[in-house]
């Protein structure tokens, strides 16, 4: 019987960026926020972020993790520092739900969060292999950094991507 080492469990909060070459299961809960999961299968290096807004606003440039425009490039840089190659990476994008759609203040932010991910990944020429974005329900995602697989759970539904 094989005694497999227990998988490291990581919870990623708002503004978080996590990169590793070790096996781990990274979980995060997404409403209107977006997470980009990057995986270099050839080197088994994985990274994930969780950002809240698409672009930084005045006086808040320092919060790299909170804004997609800053968080995604930072995620990519950390992957490269670990030895990952951009040309070998694939991406999966999650989140961007229109939570609390009744309150019109929130319209546009979810879509903008998704858009910044798609635009940046396209600019970096990173192939997007799966997405689960939009809708009006929250998501819990569990990202396996050793395989690149992502499990998605919504209230009343589960899926693997």
């Amino acid at each position: 019987m094989n005694d497999l080492p227990e998988l490291k469990k990581v919870n990623l909060g708002i503004g978080g960026i996590f990169v590793t070459a070790e096996p781990a299961e990274v979980s995060t809960v997404l409403g209107s926020c977006v997470s980009v999961c990057l995986f270099d299968e050839s080197r088994c290096i994985a990274g994930i972020n969780h950002y809240m807004l698409p672009h930084p606003h005045e006086g808040r440039q320092g919060d790299v993790g909170r804004f997609g425009e800053l968080s995604i490039p930072e995620l990519l840089e950390r992957m490269k520092r670990q030895g990952a190659m951009v040309g070998q990476m694939t991406a999966k994008v999650f989140g961007g739900a229109r939570m609390l759609a009744q309150f019109s203040n929130f319209s546009g932010i979810s879509e903008a969060n998704i858009e910044v991910a798609m635009n940046l990944l396209k600019r970096y020429q990173i192939r997007i292999v799966a997405t689960d974005v939009g809708g009006t329900r929250g998501r819990k995602i569990m990202f396996r950094t050793d395989t690149g697989r992502v499990f998605v759970r919504q209230v009343g539904a589960k899926e693997e991507l």
């Binding site: 708002i14 809960v29 997404l30 409403g31 209107s32 926020c33 809240m52 739900a97 939570m99 609390l100 929130f106 329900r137 929250g138 998501r139 819990k140 209230v155």
Partner: peptide, 10 residues
């Protein structure tokens, strides 16, 4: 009726 963090972050 949804995941706590998903609503709170909105």
């Amino acid at each position: 009726y949804d995941l706590m963090e998903a609503v709170m972050e909105a």
